[in-house]
Amino acid sequence: MNCGRARQLASLEVDEQLSAGDLVSLREHLAACSACSAFHHDVKVIRDGARALSSMPAPDDFLLGVNRKLVEARLVANPRRRAIFGPAIVARSWKLAVVAAAAAVLAMLATHTDRTAPADTAAASFMIETAASQDLTLTTASPLDDISIARLAGAVEMNNERTYPD
């Protein structure tokens, strides 16, 4: 066995990866070759030293950082944003939808309205705008208050009367 082959086997022997036959051959070579014997010893010291290297623990906020990256990558929803803004956004969207629907009804009616009664149409628009402004300032999930709905209903009825005077 030459020294090159012996050193390859020495590296494997450190990890106890040699067959019985190779182990015998290596022992014979190391007994006769001080250079390879020194190599074998040094490799074992280095391997043991590497395995005993000190551990470097992850920073305390590591998990927090991972979760932050998940949010940034849009792999998960932002729980903080959902908790703080979620209900208000949903409530506001719901209210806006009601107001928009009412406005659309009034707009349709207005196209069939007697154009000699602009004051009533303007009044209805004002009520809708008032209701909408109130709605946008609400921070709770409550629906439009009864007064606003009554005003809207009255405005629609008033327009109906104007539209079909006969």
Binding site: R7, Q8, S11, L12, Q17, F39, D42, V43, V45, I46, R47
Partner: peptide, 19 residues
């Protein structure tokens, strides 16, 4: 196995004077 052998040989070369 080959890379491990070469790596250990290189480490030994580096740490040789120390060892």
């Amino acid at each position: 196995k080959s890379r491990l052998f070469h790596a250990r040989s290189a480490l030994r070369d580096t740490l040789g004077p120390y060892l």
